[in-house]
């Protein structure tokens, strides 16, 4: 799209087509729909894919397929891949800052958001091989059994990312879900969707297996019911949205007893917005009774 800077340059810039990220590929929405994203001067920044129910269902298929492999990867490997995502994002610091700026965030604030996003990824990368040690237990049962409880990923997590924190909010909700072996389908902020799609490019270059993260752009009002009702989604994490959305999501989630995690009113830039209990939100406790002796 045309930018102001273009007029002062001789060369015509090549604008990016912002697409979805599903199963390790960048398809356009199957619906062919789009919505215009404009900057503060009303200049069109991008025609963003308006993802559909079908796109979401395709993403769930990809995420389900990727889930056992990702959960089966060693904790060390998952940690390294999250760290790699941080490295890739760090390397594209200027790009992300400029993009956030184009979506209406002041340069200083944009820089801070990118830095915080990188640091958050490093934070969760470090948890990959530690949260299990903090949250699991050996249980002293009265019978002759070695009884222990460990965390296992809930499975497939649908995430409605925060509307007002396009990059950091997305990273802050995505990282704790995938570090624990879940796969995810994420609906990005509708008003700040660009960083999400560019972040998909970062993911794509980070040895993250295809399908572990799937990113959609589109209207939350339209897609919420599908995120909440899909029978092959194990958990839904939703940020903000108010009481009506809460009622809708929790009510539809009951169809297959989804785990429902609400994260409302959280300042994602605060240090308190990162902790291992966010990992635990999308984990199950499995208890094993192993015999002792014969």
């Amino acid at each position: 799209m045309a930018t102001a800077a273009e007029k002062t340059r001789e060369r015509l810039s090549v604008a990016k087509t912002y697409k979805l990220y599903i199963g390790g590929k960048f398809p356009r929405t199957e619906s062919g729909r789009y919505f215009k994203l404009t900057d503060k001067n009303g200049v069109v920044v991008a025609n963003v894919c308006r993802g559909s129910r079908k796109d979401f269902r395709n993403a769930v298929v990809a995420a389900r397929k990727a889930q056992p492999g990702w959960a089966g990867a060693s904790a060390y490997l998952r940690g390294q891949i999250l760290y790699r995502i941080a490295e890739m994002l760090e390397g594209r610091r200027e790009q992300f800052t400029a993009e956030l700026n184009r979506q209406g965030i002041a340069v200083r604030a944009a820089e801070k958001e990118v830095d915080a996003s990188v640091d958050r990824l490093v934070y969760y990368a470090g948890w990959a091989d530690k949260y299990q040690q903090v949250f699991s237990a050996v249980n002293p049962v009265s019978s002759s059994h070695f009884n222990f409880s460990v965390l296992e990923p809930t499975g497939l997590v649908a995430i409605l990312a925060p509307e007002d924190s396009g990059l950091l909010g997305l990273v802050s909700n995505l990282a704790p879900a995938i570090v624990g072996g879940n796969t995810a389908v994420v609906l990005a902020s509708a008003s700040r969707p660009l960083s999400a799609i560019s972040f998909a490019e970062v993911l794509h270059a980070s040895d993250l297996p295809a399908g572990v993260v799937n990113l959609l752009t589109g209207y939350r009002d339209e897609l919420t019911e599908h995120f909440a009702s899909h029978m092959d989604v194990n958990a839904i994490v939703y940020c903000d949205g108010g009481k009506r959305a809460a009622r809708q999501i929790q009510s539809l989630a009951a169809g297959n007893i989804k785990r429902v995690v609400e994260r409302s009113g959280i300042e994602w830039s605060k240090p308190g917005a990162q902790h291992p209990y966010l990992i635990r939100d999308t984990q199950e406790v499995k208890t094993t009774w192993h015999p002792i002796g014969t």
Binding site: N139, V141, H145, N147, T288, W289, P291
Partner: peptide, 13 residues
């Protein structure tokens, strides 16, 4: 449960 079934204990989630 391995080599047992329907065992319960207050310490066991």
């Amino acid at each position: 449960w391995a080599n047992t079934f329907n065992k319960f204990d207050p310490t066991s989630p």
